[in-house]
Design a protein around this nucleic acid. Structure first.
Lengths: 347, 347
DNA sequence: ATGAAAGCGCTAACAC
DNA sequence: GTGTTAGCGCTTTCAT
């Protein structure tokens, strides 16, 4: 494709009849170059269409000004929002972000980490697809700063910015209880993930605090996906005694759940109340509108970059900082008592 | 941070008592190394925690195996879906993708392009925020292959993978007409963008083919955003004679439009029919369900990478290929006649 | 099968 | 203010 190879700093120097050192000075705005000389050089750069080779530069300077962002699911709207927060802060500080998507595959994640390390990123923000994996070893060995976002990384002492999932689930469940519900189901995410486990724990805690016995039938599992929420809801619908309220552990699951409710003609707000983890676009389009636990996506991203940046600049090791951000319960309509007939078995 | 600097190929060579050339051979699986020697080297690599420095490698080889993807709005679900298509193909061919988001800012886009060029990406797929900008100059000069995705790039002969927006809008409008509507409004996107103009053109064409005079009042403008759709809908609602059908030019606008309809108590499916460009999550949650023009996101991405890849491999210039993919009309409920009272002025 | 050595394009220390 | 020069870590030709 490329015929004549790209011009280098050498070519520019020759063209402007100066040394490469001088050219380098003007490229990097280091000053100390006579105005006239500079003009000649700038002109030569224009004329030749010279572009600084960042690869050579990085090689020399041992820094790339790139940070890697690794997310598990680019199609889950939660992540783009978080990414926007990171990007924004990074740009301000002169860092360029490389975003990669693992599609929840630990194998892909591992590959990506290796590539980023080889490419010499200055740091990485990651929402891992495998909290217990060994893929982080290389990052630690190379001393590359890492911030774990939204999902904990076990056995490594990285900084982390997490959401208080337990509290979020607790608030949601409590709200349902205060509305008079006793038969509250939970659609759980995978117990292999922190959010999966923690949201279940919050649910359990609320039940226990209000002395409502746990009914195993009301605890259903699924993957963090629309399909997961859909089939879980089906299962719930087939129970002899159906729950009067559902708490869904994740945005995608909520969508699946609401779809199932429609398909099964299990009437939201009339026969069953609902609260979901994460705000979703459809929440205000359903009737009744969905109450949700909302996470501060942007803040999550901004904080993550900030922590990362501090570590990149620091030249000594210091102990990990672990942040736990609180989600916010957004009460709309779907958790209201309405005219839901409760199952008054134990009242 | 990093205390002892990272091990290099030199260190490995020393540790295994061989030359760096031999180490390089085993790192790159080039064969021609005695099994026993190789074992020693592999062992040294493990022991030292050596990682190949891709920066140095790229510098030497003049290829990075990285391609850049530039999108204008990571929070518009259309793009993550396209990106998934690109990523998937790229990974298969051994390319790593770097995703960047411009947030529709031509300035940011320009910066990103420069960074990618400096970093030596092997190619770029871009949905530009500025179809007429000069930011592509550098790509052309450097001979870096480019594929324009979803938005045309004028004045440069890059490959392109576009959607037949005219046809999509035509189909939608036609459908509305066939349902008996005459007073069909369009919520237009910015005329500075190809999709904005083309979708309007398709609307116009359908009207003309069916001999329905254009009513200027039914043509409202907005940015490709929720807010754009929302305020456009407000405007339509304030007309003395309101339209009986609305065609919305973009997914985000559709969301804004539907929200406005709700807020204004302008009843969808009863007082006004609707078709929107792009399928959206909420489409099946509204009552009635939304009819939409759906684009093949994944195919778009896959094709884009394929074209790019061909160009990266080719060692001669050839003329640009321009693909136009057809969108598909998904008829659900919102465009049905239902019990909408049409304004029978000219029937 | 292995090694020596010449760069790739740049930065920065040092000389002038 | 400007030039010379020594690498950064790697791949690759050419010897051996």
């Amino acid at each position: 494709m490329r015929t004549e190879s790209k011009p280098t700093i050498q070519d520019v120097a020759k063209h402007a009849s100066v040394s490469i050192a001088t050219v380098s000075r003007v490229i990097n705005n280091q000053g100390g170059v006579r105005a006239e000389t500079e003009k000649r050089i700038v002109h030569a750069i224009k004329e030749l269409g010279y572009v600084r080779n960042a690869v050579a530069r990085s090689m020399k300077k041992k820094e790339t000004k790139m940070i890697g962002i690794i997310i598990p699911d680019i199609n889950n709207p939660f992540f783009p929002l978080v990414v926007s927060g990171i990007e924004q802060q990074a740009r301000k500080k002169g860092y360029y972000t490389m975003l990669s998507n693992t599609s929840e595959s630990p194998i892909v994640e591992s590959e990506i980490i290796n590539i980023l390390v080889e490419r010499g990123v200055d740091g990485v923000v990651i929402t891992t697809a495998d909290e217990y994996g060994k893929q982080f070893q290389i990052l630690q060995e190379q001393g590359i700063p890492v911030v774990a976002l939204d999902r904990r990384i076990n056995e490594y002492n990285f900084d982390s910015v997490l959401i208080d999932n337990i509290d979020g689930a607790y608030q949601a469940t409590k709200q349902l209880i205060l509305q008079g519900h006793q038969d509250i189901a939970i659609i759980c995410g995978p117990h292999s993930t922190t959010p999966g486990r923690d949201r279940f724990a919050g649910y359990l805690k609320a039940l226990s605090d209000y002395e409502i016995p746990l009914n195993d039938q009301f605890v259903v599992q699924g993957s963090f996906s629309e399909e997961g929420g859909y089939s879980a809801t089906r299962t719930l619908n087939e129970l002899e005694v159906r729950p009067t309220a559902i708490f869904s552990s994740n945005n995608l699951m909520s969508i699946g759940c609401i779809k199932a409710l429609q398909d099964l003609e299990w009437r939201l707000g009339e026969e069953v109340a609902f609260i979901g983890f994460d705000d979703i676009e459809i929440a205000t389009f359903t009737k009744p509108k969905l109450s949700v636990v909302s996470r501060p996506m942007n803040a999550l991203g901004e904080l993550a970059f900030q922590l990362l940046h501090e570590r990149i600049l620091a030249n000594e090791v210091f102990s990990p900082r672990n942040y736990l951000l609180s989600p916010e319960l957004k009460i709309r309509e779907s958790c209201r008592l309405g005219n839901i007939r409760l199952n008054h078995k134990r009242s």
